[in-house]
Deep mutational scan, measured.
Amino acid sequence: MSIQHFRVALIPFFAAFCLPVFAHPETLVKVKDAEDQLGARVGYIELDLNSGKILESFRPEERFPMMSTFKVLLCGAVLSRVDAGQEQLGRRIHYSQNDLVEYSPVTEKHLTDGMTVRELCSAAITMSDNTAANLLLTTIGGPKELTAFLHNMGDHVTRLDRWEPELNEAIPNDERDTTMPAAMATTLRKLLTGELLTLASRQQLIDWMEADKVAGPLLRSALPAGWFIADKSGAGERGSRGIIAALGPDGKPSRIVVIYTTGSQATMDERNRQIAEIGASLIKHW
């Protein structure tokens, strides 16, 4: 067993022997301040990774656009098919120029040779490549099948209805392509620590998230040296922004954090800054 596999296998073990965790309302004060600064709703939840206990939450059962955070769930569904012998990570998928959609920095470079399922998941999570996500959605049967996968996990809230990039439209009061912070946090925890996926697939999923290259201005910008984070960000229309993450000190994750916002007129930089400040408060009061 590799060191990384050992780390993920012992996530519940280490967490069980940690000192009790206590909620700190100071972080919620910052979440509410972010709402004021952005002029928009902000949803927040913080779960203990081992027990699933909610440590703090704000608007945990209000719907927010998922945006690209759905790509972690998508690759979880792909990995479940791999575990069941219905898919192979090494299978190569070929596609054409007509398949390319807006923001496809990886797939646009491989029109000639195609990409493997493993490479597509890596591109979808680490670079948020939209064509990679659409190609992977095709392998599982489309958005409705991802929703069905989530329902089978016990998540009857999260739903995907459309493809990239239309799913980022974020129309107010439109339930399409949305989740709730509580539902997303619980589902992410199941994917990373539950028995739904094999140990190898859980490790692969967290490795992809740990290698995320496009979430630097968010929670990662607030992390002290030595902290662990595996995350996936999302951005959408109407001032929408979000991030889902597993993080913790001492090089291992111990909490799940989900943050979503929508309806702001603020710039992307300002949305990023507010999420980073929430992260800084979380870490300060850990």
Rank of each mutant, 00 (worst) to 15 (best):
I45K: 01
R271G: 08
T27A: 07
E175T: 13
T116D: 08
A170H: 10
L160T: 09
Q265S: 14
S221M: 10
T112N: 13
W163N: 10
L47I: 15
A225D: 12
A211Q: 15
L111W: 11
P165E: 06
L282T: 09
Q88E: 15
L160S: 10
Q265L: 14
M66K: 03
T27P: 06
E108C: 07
S122T: 13
E108I: 13
E277A: 11
L192G: 00
S264Q: 05
G279W: 02
D207K: 14
A183N: 12
H24L: 09
K284G: 12
K190V: 15
Q88Y: 15
I171P: 09
T126D: 07
Q203V: 10
D269H: 13
V258H: 04
K284N: 11
G39D: 14
T27Q: 05
Q203H: 09
G242N: 02
R118G: 14
M153R: 07
Q97S: 14
P224D: 06
K30C: 07
E270P: 05
A211P: 06
S51E: 11
A185W: 00
L219A: 03
L197E: 03
G76F: 05
E46P: 03
L55H: 08
R202E: 08
N50M: 15
S122R: 12
G226S: 12
N50Q: 14
L282Y: 03
V31Q: 01
Q203A: 10
L100G: 03
D212A: 06
T178H: 01
E87Q: 07
P253V: 09
E108K: 13
T147Y: 02
G90R: 11
F149S: 07
P143R: 05
L135E: 06
T138A: 14
D212M: 04
Q203I: 09
Q86K: 15
S57Q: 12
A280E: 15
I256L: 12
R238P: 09
L197K: 07
L247C: 07
T107A: 12
H151T: 13
T138Y: 14
I244H: 01
P181K: 01
G154N: 10
D48A: 08
P253D: 09
I244P: 01
L146W: 06
A222C: 10
R176E: 07
S122A: 13
W208M: 08
K32Q: 15
K284S: 13
P105G: 06
S254T: 14
R63E: 06
S80W: 15
E166Y: 14
Q97K: 15
P249Y: 06
